[in-house]
Nucleic acid binder design. Sequence first.
DNA 1: GAAGACATGTAAGAGGTTACATGATTGT
DNA 2: ACAATCATGTAACCTCTTACATGTCTTC
Lengths: 185, 185
Amino acid sequence: MKTLSYALLSLLARQDFSGYEIKQLMQAPIGFFWRARHSQIYPELARLEELGYVTHEVVEQQNVPDKKVYTLTAAGREQLRQWVSEPSEAAVIRDEFLLKTFSLWLADPAAAIAVVEDQARQHVEQLRVYEGIKQHIETEGAGEFMQPSSAYFASYITLMQGISYEQQYINWCRMIVEQLEALAD
Amino acid sequence: MKTLSYALLSLLARQDFSGYEIKQLMQAPIGFFWRARHSQIYPELARLEELGYVTHEVVEQQNVPDKKVYTLTAAGREQLRQWVSEPSEAAVIRDEFLLKTFSLWLADPAAAIAVVEDQARQHVEQLRVYEGIKQHIETEGAGEFMQPSSAYFASYITLMQGISYEQQYINWCRMIVEQLEALAD
DNA sequence: GAAGACATGTAAGAGGTTACATGATTGT
DNA sequence: ACAATCATGTAACCTCTTACATGTCTTC
């Protein structure tokens, strides 16, 4: 089973979704640490159904096309639970911008400052998005997000990593800009 | 030009290397933010040579096979310099472990603590490796690593992101373990 | 009338990993 | 004897992205 499968199961463990809804979730909330396009999602849902980890039923709608709503089976839930309990290898970072900072000595100082500030700006934006979701979880999952058996807890700690990561990245960018400004004179 | 090409050029901008040496560097120093196998590296070096960004000469050796040592051309250096000066889209994180924490509410507390502690351990190890390289740069590039036009400077700031990232990751893991231990009772 | 959301699919292509392939030397 | 290092390459496979494909309804 590939990682994408577990991404889909992890959403369906929370509630039923159509392929289209999952596609949207894979862009934003989950998409922050695992993205996928609809061209990957639709075939993968069909495959998970063949394996018996999900089932679907067609829901008819008015004015919009019918949709297939997928439900996690007991087998799917168990498969996900087991995968979560197994250790993972630490992820290898794959960040094009870090490759650029590795060659930043070749750029002229003004250009260097510009690209670093641009990157910082993007991470500030992302941080704001996370902060918004944090507010949402703290409100909606009020009494639950502190209980380890609640999905809100899991969403919350995952989100905290996003926030913490972005803050760290922004601080690092600012440190570089400071050094470039101080040392370029 | 794909990102891998720039990874190779960024190494050759520092000094000449054979394909085999680049392969090793792509595992460790650069490999921390952009990895590649030799099956990608050898054809890509050939392609860069066709494009005129690198040249190679065969160096004969005793007891070990001959090697092709690659050198960056002026055109290659200019191509790299321009790429560095262009803004990049913020990288999308792709971390299987974050996907697991997103479903951590399904695992029993003991298993949850175990997987998080295992992940923390791996990041502590990685941090130690980075700290070692940091010492190395501070010694070898003593007077240079503070100058933006020096390759040591670029190596240093990139490495600082690695260190900062690992520290942040470890703190986050420890926070989760604390919460799981406190709340599981 | 055009653009965009809803909804699901397939096909082609790029990028990346694993495996296949060869061969000498050095260390256990 | 066996594994590991040095050294370079190709082939098969998997994953992921981009593009092709279709059709209705609502909003500008």
